[in-house]
């Protein structure tokens, strides 16, 4: 496609692009063109102001007071954890995270998950179950959610690359939610689902293999689970 034609097609698509109405492939082509076209970028900026105004047209609906209570409870508990972790935890994350902290980039979960990792490194207790060299390792999990501390106990039982989480006292997730297991490989890749469960006391096997050094996390997720964690972890263990 000639540069002129591409430019014209991009200009025609900018309205749909600004509204988020282009399919992924077409949106990507527009993005690539925008990288090298100042005129289209300026036009998009002009149109985007109209898109940004659209939410203001929405009829106001007051949120329920419980929403604030829930949000503030999480915020207060995470603030407490950050304070407990000391000054370095309050610093903004660096622009290019080092491999060791790459999983910070889970974005929404960064401070809580990162703090959990620090806690795990410091507090995880590894007990090698004797059993005559059976190769079974049992790792005590760290309870991240302060509201659950002292009430919930969890451990990870690892044999080879198979792992099983044992929990006791875990509260039932809210309606239409499940507890979801995640494995975060030590390479720093984003956490990947290792299954969902609704067990409050008992064992659940991870559907994904774990390797030494991987993090195993549990979070509460809506519906039948999420593609990526959307809430702070309840507990975490380093395999």
């Amino acid at each position: 496609m000639s540069a002129d034609l591409e430019h014209r097609k991009c200009m025609e698509s900018l309205g749909a692009y600004a509204l988020g109405a282009l399919p992924d492939g077409e949106a990507e082509r527009v993005r690539q063109h925008l990288d090298g076209c100042r005129e289209c970028r300026a036009e998009l900026e002009w149109l985007r102001a109209a898109v940004d105004a659209l939410p203001a047209s929405v009829p106001p609906i007051e949120p329920p007071p419980e929403l604030k209570a829930r949000v503030m409870e999480i915020v207060e508990s995470e603030a407490e954890l950050l304070r407990a972790a000391g000054e370095p935890a309050d610093r903004p994350p660096p622009p290019s995270p080092t491999p060791r902290r790459r999983w910070f980039s889970i974005g929404a979960l960064a401070p809580a998950v990162a703090l959990a990792a620090v806690c795990v490194v410091a507090l995880v207790v590894m007990l090698v179950v004797s059993g005559g060299g059976s190769g079974i390792r049992v790792i005590n999990a760290q309870i991240v959610d302060p509201a659950l501390a002292g009430r919930v106990h969890a451990s990870l039982r690892v044999q080879g690359t198979e792992a099983q989480l044992r929990v006791s006292g875990l509260p039932a997730p809210p309606a239409d939610h499940v507890d979801q297991l995640w494995v975060q490989h030590s390479t720093g890749a984003p956490p990947r689902s290792a299954g969902t469960f609704v067990v409050q006391s008992g064992s659940v096997s991870l559907s994904r293999p774990v390797r030494r050094g991987d993090l195993v996390l549990v979070s509460v997720e809506p519906g039948r689970g999420s593609a990526a964690p959307t809430t702070a972890p309840l507990l975490v263990a380093r395999a």
Partner: peptide, 16 residues
Amino acid sequence: VKGRMRLALERMRSSM
């Protein structure tokens, strides 16, 4: 459809 989207946003933007 693309044209209507574009025209709508242009019109809103100019009025803004």
